[in-house]
């Protein structure tokens, strides 16, 4: 079981050093994902025992455009992964099924409709979203103009 928690900036202060690390998390299967810079960017991420899970060790070099925080005393990874360093974790997490995407997208769309929004930019659309948009349009349930972007 994998839990992914979102934490806004102010909530990080409840963790030691201002952000969580593996010693501050109880369950090995918890990821805390920073809410900043859009959740789509997933800027910072912690996973307990990530070194065991993903092969990170004190000898793992820093990735290009990313950062693996290491304990200054022991040199061991703390579990704090920024930017591209997250990829080793996220590449192991399977994509949600289309039904989940559809449910989430419809919930977001309901909010947009309530706010009077009729068109939006999907700044980073993935393949399941493509399929959901198409399905909703075929069923006559897509009530927006959407300009999509492909990552």
């Amino acid at each position: 079981m994998l839990f992914i928690l979102l934490a806004k900036s102010g909530q990080w202060r409840y963790f030691p050093k201002g952000h969580p690390n593996k010693s501050g998390l109880i369950l090995w299967s918890v990821i805390v994902r920073h809410y900043s810079a859009m959740i789509r960017v997933m800027v910072q991420l912690q996973i307990r025992q990530c070194s065991n899970l993903q092969g990170f060790t004190k000898d793992t070099p820093q990735p290009a455009y990313g950062y693996i925080e290491k304990d200054p005393q022991t040199g061991e990874p703390t579990g704090y992964l920024a930017e591209t360093a997250q990829q080793a974790v996220f590449s192991k997490i399977p994509m949600y099924p289309d039904e989940v995407w559809e449910r989430a997208m419809k919930r977001a769309m309901d909010n947009l409709t309530a706010w009077g929004v009729t068109a939006y930019i999907d700044a980073s659309a993935n393949e399941p979203q493509f399929r959901v948009y198409q399905k909703m349009e075929r069923e006559g349930n897509l009530n927006f103009h959407i300009s999509g972007s492909i990552p």
């Binding site: 930019i121 700044a123 493509f130 349009e137 897509l142 103009h145 959407i146 300009s147 972007s149 492909i150």
Partner: peptide, 9 residues
Amino acid sequence: SLFDPIGRK
């Protein structure tokens, strides 16, 4: 007509 994937992120 409703979904246009014209952008690159």
